[in-house]
Nucleic acid binder design. Structure first.
Lengths: 231, 231, 231, 231
DNA sequence: AATGAATGAGTGTTCATTCAT
DNA sequence: GATGAATGAACACTCATTCAT
């Protein structure tokens, strides 16, 4: 609609940027938007604008909208487990302190904004693209969980943790609970509706996690009776 | 296309008036579809067809699509907390056994298919209708959590639970973790990707929950001995 | 949806009113709404509600929505010209004073609210139901115009009006101009955008109307020259 | 259905990019349809088809349906008053001849079909889009009226027109009457129902207009008496 | 490599009209 | 007579996707 100047003098190409960076930029924009508005509510024009390109360019680099989501999930898949493993390797202390770090770094306090967003998108996959979600679970979550399970087993071996703790379930429930709570608190107004410190949520979750794995008090009649009653 | 009987007697109506059942049926159809395809992916025509009516009828009973969702959420809100309270009242045993039941009945094993679907929809609200989600959290989850917190506090009072357990966080993380895990397992193929028994998930979660609240082996020889024994 | 009491005691019929009045009431409601919201913007439910009945009842008495409009137009057609004739008959003064009254009573100051509304609807016919509009023109306006024309001709005969005035056009332009201006002023905010007294509009229009029919200054050189220039 | 040439050379595009012409064409199509069927009765698909594009394209260039109407009104607003002023400037004769031209050119004989349609749409705004109508009145009609008023005042100053003529009302009633009559004649079958020459309508209206402004016969007892009676 | 004009299949929603009761 | 449940044909508008340039 706007009339374009046709002056022959200045050729000045309307677009001129290194094609290498484009995909990255588009993906980054998509991530930002998916995380804040949700996948469905984000339009391709939104993404294009945020990436400083036009719709056509997005389609030049990515087959379609869902591909963007898939690519983002892949990024997460590729990095996430590696990070966790690095954390474990880099921290030769007792398993309890390794688990502490894994939970904190891997599931509660993302290293940077982009990893936080990635997590939001990740959980959203469940409703936005169930198939992708299944794949992501397989690629990432299950591997992360088994890493945690391994740590717990090691703890059992050293006597730090009780033998009868269900490591598989512990790994799953605590990580899921923590991630979902943090997610809800950050995206909805849950933080204001249900006010309390995010840090407390993380710290206490870790504490509960470790405590749930530790040997319990068995001595004394009271305790014994209680156990009997409860079963 | 359908051949009409031309008997003058029975004109055989093309549709029947069933004002009493329609809303229920429509709501049921919506629930089924929302749970399986997600709110956004579900069309009003889908709902109408599934309910055996036409689009217009859906709009005759419900102002718009979101109202359907809201109504479903309301149903849940109205019943959910009440059920939990009933469970507590109906079970005068020790808090640990009350908590066990609350977790199982309230968050893991829905009484019927429709309550299961309701739960699926509920979690989906987070991305489909953030505002409704926030309302739902406020109406239901927070109240459910505080009910659990109260039980835990009672357990602390009786010495059954340790004083330093963070009841607030425990209530939140365990319920969220349990619900989400069950949800994922049931909606995706997670059950096949990550094969293990749903029942084990529930039982172990409850066990971990209670264990995380119990007094730990801390100081003194007893603890030391125990640790040694257990390794 | 609301449960109806089925007590056999009080039969009390839900609807019980003289069938004679219904059509009138419905028509009155339709008129009110058409005039204030416009034909298109008025729904049948609006009308039914305003008439204190339900949609079905409206259809029991009138074939469809447009029929309501047609019936209203008919009412106007039936009464309008008769009124004008009555005005003329009831006022045996000079034609100028008859015309004054005809313009005022017939086109500017409706006897009651309902006649004002009728006028609004009437003009709206042009876009809402062109065919009805044509019929209305034929039934009413043309007859009203020729009544005015007759008066003008009588004035010409008595020498009160100039011979060369185009009675046909005068009747048409002044009535149309007056009606439309009053309509615009009353329905839009024209009254506030273009502030001046409605009464002045009516009075001055009548004055201009009569003046345009009166013999011009012919005597004297100045006037004669002016005429010559203009032709 | 259309047979596609399979020559590998010329893939023969299914549609052409004509960003420069599209908006114009769409607007033109909309104008044509709005004028003939009315704004409300015109579908966006109608417009798209008439413009040789698809619905999407219409929305690519115009935010929504009402915007099309608004844009058309703007065009009129922008040009209409300017034209009138040009007429006055370009015709340095006596005010009576200026008024003649203004009435004829500005309100009776549109320069081309498109301006005639614009006028039709304009009057229709009253019921289709009251708000736009109000704006249009403000932007255009009031300004046009005051231009006419100014001319009349000038005529009063030169003694060509009588001092007591209500210029404001004259400007309003004659223009409205003329426009509406022409509109009715052209859109309905009024022309055939109420047969007489359009040209006569215009000429006579102008004549009546000017005559209504001229000094009246005041000489003679008869006239004087009449005036007294009538007030 | 990049653009952005053009497409077209949906989608929610409205509402006059019908018809079982 | 009267109701109001149920219908179904539109309709405006959105947006992922395609493709001419």
């Amino acid at each position: 609609m706007a009339v374009k100047k046709q002056t022959a003098r200045a050729p000045e190409p309307r677009w001129a940027r290194r094609p290498e960076e484009r995909p990255r930029e588009i993906l980054a924009a998509a991530l930002r938007l998916f995380a804040s508005k949700g996948y469905t509510a984000t339009t391709l024009v939104d993404i294009a604008k945020a990436a400083g390109v036009t719709k056509g360019t997005v389609y030049y680099y990515f087959r379609n909208k869902e591909t963007l989501l898939a690519r983002l999930a892949e990024v997460n898949d590729r990095e996430a487990v590696g990070e966790l493993e690095a954390i474990v390797r880099g921290n030769p202390g007792p398993v309890s302190s390794q688990l502490r770090l894994v939970l904190r770094r891997g599931f509660a306090e993302p290293r940077d904004e982009s990893r936080r967003q990635l997590r939001v998108v990740y959980v959203g996959l469940h409703s936005d693209a169930p198939r992708l979600f299944a794949r992501a679970i397989q690629q990432t979550l299950i591997r992360a969980w088994s890493l945690i399970v391994k740590l717990i087993e090691r703890g059992k071996a050293t006597g730090e943790f009780r033998q009868d703790a269900d490591a598989q379930v512990a790994a799953r429930v605590f990580t899921a609970g923590l991630v979902v709570q943090m997610l809800w608190r950050q995206t909805t107004d849950l933080a204001s509706l249900d006010p309390f410190d995010d840090a407390r949520m993380v710290d206490s979750t870790i504490e509960l996690f470790l405590h749930s794995l530790r040997p319990a008090v068995r001595i004394g009649a009271a305790a014994g009776r209680r156990m009997a009653t409860e079963s």
